[in-house]
Amino acid sequence: METYTWLRQFADSWGLLFMTLFFIGVVIFAFRPGSREQADEAARIPLKDD
């Protein structure tokens, strides 16, 4: 099988599945309980004085 054809078939099937699962994981991570406080704290880091 030609390399391009094999990579194309892989990307069309498993690549799409992987990207979908990764996206769902990122959304769950961003909206998990307690993430608001951590995000607010990280946003204030550049404004802190030494």
Results as ranks from 00 to 15, higher is better:
28 I>W: 15
25 G>R: 07
36 R>F: 07
49 D>A: 11
23 F>Q: 12
12 D>R: 15
33 P>S: 09
16 L>Q: 12
18 F>R: 14
6 W>D: 08
11 A>Q: 14
14 W>S: 05
16 L>R: 15
12 D>N: 12
13 S>M: 03
1 M>Y: 07
18 F>Q: 03
43 A>V: 00
41 E>G: 02
23 F>D: 10
2 E>P: 15
17 L>N: 01
26 V>Y: 13
50 D>G: 01
48 K>L: 14
39 A>K: 15
8 R>W: 10
17 L>D: 01
38 Q>F: 09
20 T>R: 07
20 T>G: 04
48 K>G: 02
38 Q>C: 06
38 Q>E: 11
7 L>D: 02
33 P>A: 08
45 I>V: 14
1 M>V: 10
22 F>S: 11
30 A>E: 00
31 F>Q: 00
50 D>L: 01
19 M>F: 10
42 A>H: 02
3 T>N: 14
40 D>L: 15
48 K>D: 06
29 F>P: 07
28 I>M: 13
30 A>I: 00
48 K>N: 04
3 T>Y: 13
12 D>S: 13
31 F>S: 02
6 W>P: 00
32 R>Y: 05
42 A>L: 10
47 L>K: 03
8 R>M: 07
39 A>W: 15
6 W>L: 14
26 V>S: 09
7 L>T: 02
22 F>G: 05
14 W>T: 06
43 A>C: 01
27 V>R: 06
7 L>R: 08
10 F>S: 05
36 R>I: 08
28 I>S: 08
18 F>L: 13
22 F>P: 05
35 S>E: 08
38 Q>D: 06
41 E>I: 00
14 W>A: 07
28 I>C: 11
43 A>D: 01
33 P>V: 01
9 Q>V: 08
10 F>K: 14
4 Y>V: 08
47 L>C: 01
24 I>C: 12
8 R>K: 13
25 G>M: 06
25 G>E: 03
23 F>V: 12
